[in-house]
Each structure stands twice: as C-alpha cells, then as structure tokens.
Simulated scan of single mutants.
Amino acid sequence: MQVADFDFHLPDELIAQFPPEVRGGSRLLHVEAGGTLHDRWFRDLPALLRPDDLLVMNDTRVIKARLFGHKDSGGKVELLVERVTGEFEALAFIRASHAPKPGSRIQLDQDVTIEVLARQDDLTQLRFPCPVLDALQRLGRLPLPPYITHLPTADDEARYQTVYADEPGAVAAPTAGLHFDDAMLAALQDKGIRTARVTLHVGAGTFQPVRVEQIAEHKMHSERYTIPQATVDAIRETRARGGRVVAVGTTSLRALEAASQSGDLHAGSGETQIFITPGYCFRVVDVLITNFHLPKSTLLMLVSAFAGLEPIRTAYAHAITERYRFFSYGDAMFLEKHNPESPR
C-alpha cells in the first residue's frame, strides 16, 4: 500500500488548539464493526462498555522535554529530549545553526552544563551534571505537538496529562486518555468495568512524517514499554469471562500487541518498533478508544488496520462534515475491531 492511501484534507480550523472547557467534554464517534456510525459524547462511554470489559490504560507521564541553551561559541540551541536513558543521560533531537560536536558542551543555565557524548542517527547522546528528570522539571518546557501553535501555559501542563499519569518519560501524551476524569473512572468502576495499566513512553517520533511512498519501506521509531503481570492476569480473566479488551489509545494497543508477538501476551519490559498496517492480525485488543490522527501518519494506518480502511475513510469524512475536533486536544472515537473473528 502507498502512503497516499491514507491522505485526507482537513480544514485548519478543525485542529483543536485547546482542550475542551472541562475534561471529558468531548464528542465520541462510535464506529461499529460493520462500519455503522453513531455520534455520541464521551460521557456516553459507560453505556458502550459491558461489565466484563477491561480497559487498558497507558500510565506514562509527559516530561518537560524541551530545553533551550547555548553552545560554548554562544550559538543558540534547542533540545527536545526523546528519551531518558539513565539517571544522568538522555537522547535528544538538537536544533542549532551547527550541530554541536561530541565533547562540546551546552549551557542551560548557570548551574547546568550538559556534555555532548555522541551522535546516534538523528539523535544526540547527552550527559547531565544532575538527574535528567530534575533538570527537565526545573528548566524544561512542555513539548506540545507541532500543530498546536501557542506556547504552553499552566493550563496545558495540567490538561496535556492524563489524570492517572504515573511513570515519567513520555515526550507526547497518550491523548485518548486525556478525556478521562475521576468521575468517569468512578462511573466505570461502579458499573463493574475493570481497568489495568501498561506503560509506553511516547517518543517524538510519533510526530515524524512518513517520508517514503510505499508503507512497507517505512522504519518505525523505537519506544520503551512495560507490561505488568497483573495486566496479563487481568486480560486472561477477561477472556475467560467473555469480556472485551479495550485499549485506551494507540499506545496501549501497541504495547499489548508488541508483547504478544510470540502468540501469547507476556509480562515484562522491552523496546518496540511494531508497525501496524492493514492486514495485521490483532492478538489482544478488541476495542480501541482513540483520537483522530494526522493524514498519512502511522497512527492513521494503525486505526485503518483495526477498524478497516474504508470504514475509517468514511468515519473521517463524516467527522469533518460534522465538525469534530481533531488531534491531541480533539474529540475521540470508539472503534470496534472490523474482524472480530481474527485469532487471539
């Protein structure tokens, strides 16, 4: 398949620049397995779920990954930390007039000077004089997506984070989870719907464009994930009861599918470059809650694999006509798997 198969025109005014006034105040487009569409609100979610269903959520926490400094020569440098690789080290994208060379230094403030260690493809390995997460919390700026045009505010720092965020390390939010508030979680619990956690630290590569024409030639970025044994046990119990596994977000889905490539879901941590495109056989997930994704993106390819290419095309055209809000701060979708008989 070609990348052009996943293109569509989106009016700029439908790109949500701010979250809804209240968390969870979004619309929800329900796409049935047969492609039938229903316009709903996110508050309708409990009615779409069954008591034996299990919601799997990504508990990663967005870090203040954008830093500004200057080289020894005085030239300005902008850093986007892609991944914290150790207490004092990180990989980062660097924007500068001339890329700093290994052995050089970057001054962030009077107390923090970081050392450039080595290049790794498009990334640079850096060493900090203090714990990386401490430096980011004190000096960093929230890395809002490139299509959000305003500078991050205090409101963004609260709203571009899920209410259940726990494990710091993401450069971008698992945005399907942004719709959940404490009241929604309580309502789900009252209905007997259980939740489980995975961790996948979303990298900046999630916003990287696909630069090839044939999707089979695209190389995915790598992301770190962890699947707790308690989540594996909860999924097995859900299956035994006849319930559905509902992934909250493409990141939760990618973690679960990556950890089940041998055929069975396994607990543990690892790296994944899993690239899910139409024709993929889903092993774990039955339902996907997700936001609307960028044209020609790997995430649009993923949801097309899950719900079917034509149903997704129809759903996106409907959403544009009905003026849904798109991308990170936008509205949500409730997608049923288009081939529910595929092997688990």
Rank of each mutant, 00 (worst) to 15 (best):
E87I: 06
G249A: 00
L37F: 10
P340E: 04
V285R: 01
R283V: 06
A305I: 09
H38M: 02
D134W: 04
S97G: 09
G192I: 03
P146M: 08
R323G: 01
Q229C: 06
T149V: 07
S269N: 05
H179C: 13
R283E: 09
G69N: 03
D52T: 14
K76Q: 11
G268L: 11
H293C: 12
F334A: 03
Y164I: 12
L151P: 00
W41F: 14
A315F: 03
K191G: 07
E32P: 11
I274A: 02
R254W: 12
H266M: 11
H266T: 15
P152I: 08
H318W: 11
Q261N: 06
T231V: 11
A315H: 03
I15C: 01
Y324S: 12
R211L: 12
L185K: 08
S97K: 14
A315M: 10
E82T: 14
R211V: 00
L288M: 03
P168V: 09
P228S: 05
E336T: 09
S297K: 06
Q214W: 12
K191I: 10
E89L: 03
P51I: 00
L49N: 05
D181Y: 01
R50C: 08
S260G: 14
T149P: 04
S97P: 00
R138M: 06
L126C: 13
T238L: 00
A135Y: 02
I94S: 09
D53E: 10
R50Q: 13
K76I: 02
Q261M: 15
Q161I: 11
I227P: 01
M301I: 04
D44V: 13
S97F: 05
E13I: 08
R323S: 05
V202S: 10
P343F: 07
A96F: 01
V303N: 00
T314D: 09
P143D: 13
I193W: 00
G330T: 06
T277W: 12
E78F: 06
D12R: 08
Y324M: 11
T124V: 15
P228Y: 03
L14D: 06
R138E: 09
T206M: 03
L14Y: 00
